[in-house]
Design a protein around this nucleic acid. Sequence first.
DNA 1: AATGAATGAGCCTTCATTCAT
DNA 2: AATGAATGAAGGCTCATTCAT
Lengths: 200, 200, 200, 200
Amino acid sequence: MSKSGTPIVRRKALILATIAEIGEAGTLDVTVSQIAQRAGMSPALAHHYFGSKDKIFLAAMRYILENFRQTVSARLKTAKSPEDRIRAIIDASFDSSQFEREIVAAWLAFYMRALQSPPARRLLQVYARRLHSNLVFNLIQIFDAATAQQVAQGLASMIDGFYIRRALQDRVPDQQGIRQLVQDYLELWLERENRIDQSA
Amino acid sequence: MSKSGTPIVRRKALILATIAEIGEAGTLDVTVSQIAQRAGMSPALAHHYFGSKDKIFLAAMRYILENFRQTVSARLKTAKSPEDRIRAIIDASFDSSQFEREIVAAWLAFYMRALQSPPARRLLQVYARRLHSNLVFNLIQIFDAATAQQVAQGLASMIDGFYIRRALQDRVPDQQGIRQLVQDYLELWLERENRIDQSA
Amino acid sequence: MSKSGTPIVRRKALILATIAEIGEAGTLDVTVSQIAQRAGMSPALAHHYFGSKDKIFLAAMRYILENFRQTVSARLKTAKSPEDRIRAIIDASFDSSQFEREIVAAWLAFYMRALQSPPARRLLQVYARRLHSNLVFNLIQIFDAATAQQVAQGLASMIDGFYIRRALQDRVPDQQGIRQLVQDYLELWLERENRIDQSA
Amino acid sequence: MSKSGTPIVRRKALILATIAEIGEAGTLDVTVSQIAQRAGMSPALAHHYFGSKDKIFLAAMRYILENFRQTVSARLKTAKSPEDRIRAIIDASFDSSQFEREIVAAWLAFYMRALQSPPARRLLQVYARRLHSNLVFNLIQIFDAATAQQVAQGLASMIDGFYIRRALQDRVPDQQGIRQLVQDYLELWLERENRIDQSA
DNA sequence: AATGAATGAGCCTTCATTCAT
DNA sequence: AATGAATGAAGGCTCATTCAT
């Protein structure tokens, strides 16, 4: 074994350093040198492992998205009903592991990157669609198809919106407050649904 | 008068060019040369007018925010009730003038910039607070104070969220669909409020 | 006018610096910085004028080839007979302006570059073919077609060969000696031709 | 014995890989990694065997030159007269083993390298002088000393010239055509010599 | 013997910014 | 007012070379 561990260890160190550096800077305008230094290695080695700055970014993005996917997965396991599952997905989005300011900033930076970089865009869309399907699949067991689509869109937008506001603004509710607001959004739809059902 | 008009004209040309360039690129990674060229002048002149790239960006940001403020103002004039006024603010956010893909991309780019640049952050917050006050002022005439805060946060987040999704993803409702979804969010709250009132 | 002259002047300065630097180093392994410094400007300006290192090289190559073409042209003007014209072309190749060691080294370096760079190769071939046509056109008035082709090939190779030897080896005849050897080659062919004619 | 043979075997593999790589690239701009990979070993091992990239190049050059020397030697063995021996040397230069395009490109690259690297230059000159002596030794038995020198220079230049043209240009005679043209050059001198003798 | 890990040095290129005209 | 000329600083990337194992 070499000075600081196996390539796997070092690749992960680079990915974490990338996220930290971007989160701290609030931009993708970070240099490979900064990232490498934070990861305790030379910029040359960073290139050796990933080939290019772009690929470092993509790897970090994949890491963040995969992390989120796992958080969702874990929470879904204990959910018993469609409503539970929807609420689990919402909660996953505001899980502490996702919601530290730096992570959120990195997340948004990668989000923006999808505007420029087709590979980043593809990566993002794979996860976005999976999440959307997941929401719709469960919503459709409660609402009619059209409404399910709408609620899914509304939920996803609200979550993204809170992410951006959380990163940028000061007078935003805290983690639990935000979580609650999104859960309330679902609750409001359920209430309306119930009324419709009753009146029927 | 010079080749292309008064300083005011040229400053505006630069600002519009900045927004267009950023919107097109989907990043703040645009060069002063690109901006100046699109505005039909030399990069040196751009500096002469604004002093630095940072200040060009700030001016463009101010322009976008001010534009939005005016759109809101215009729509508020014809609103008669608190509810009308809230709906007017929502509609302003999805006014065609705000919602073309390039404008949205520029808007988001400036949003992100607030993460790095304190002046940009201040600028953004001035407008965000004004908008928030505006919403809360009207909401509080319908809801109790705490609920008004929540609805205001929810609305603002949903709007921001749809902006980011609109810029980035493909399967998102169109302009009217999005507008309707946000209006529905308000509607849902109003429905709950009515029930509470009735049951009281 | 700016500090050091018009763009044309500076472009030419860069081209000459490129040739000198390559000639001195005997390789294309010279940095843009070295070239720019020798031309009295910053590397950034060199890029501004030519766009890339490759294009600097191509411009220098074009300059050398064009220079040679002009030398040939000038000498051809006073030639009266086909034989005179062939001899003029030979002499042009060993004109002092072409035959300084540094120029020869640069020439060879560019020659080699044609092995890697398609644009360089095209550039070279345009000139090579023109020269070949020129030789053949005149030779064919003395020899039959097949022989004319052979003599043209032989002459061109001998000239190239002396260039490379001149640059690399020590015990090579001087400029006039070399020139004479190539002229002799033509002479030998003419002698054989005469004998054939006489015996006919 | 190790994975791939004795050090001698591996050194030779590296040398052949170097020649192949340079021949293919048409430049000395090949990396040690490329060479080592083609030779089936790590760059570190290549360094271990040769000490530096420079020394790898020198070894490859020595190999090429030695190879040529042996080709000449072999052909000289069956030659009976001075003329035969001169013709044998010419033929050796266009032996198939020397005249494949890649070998020629490598040969020229090393030739050029002599412009930068004194050791390379020395190496080249040792062989060049030996060849020259060899030619002159035989020529002097046919021509007077001054003419012998000239013919030797002419032959050597023509050979070098055809090498460079063969590598670079498209409309060049094939191997046999070239060989014949150089042999013709000798023939032309012999014809002249005969006439002089006859007229004497 | 052999290699993967690691890096320092260097190069091309870009760009915001300045300055003389 | 306006610009072309010019540059310093910095960043991504490559590569020969070293070293521990």
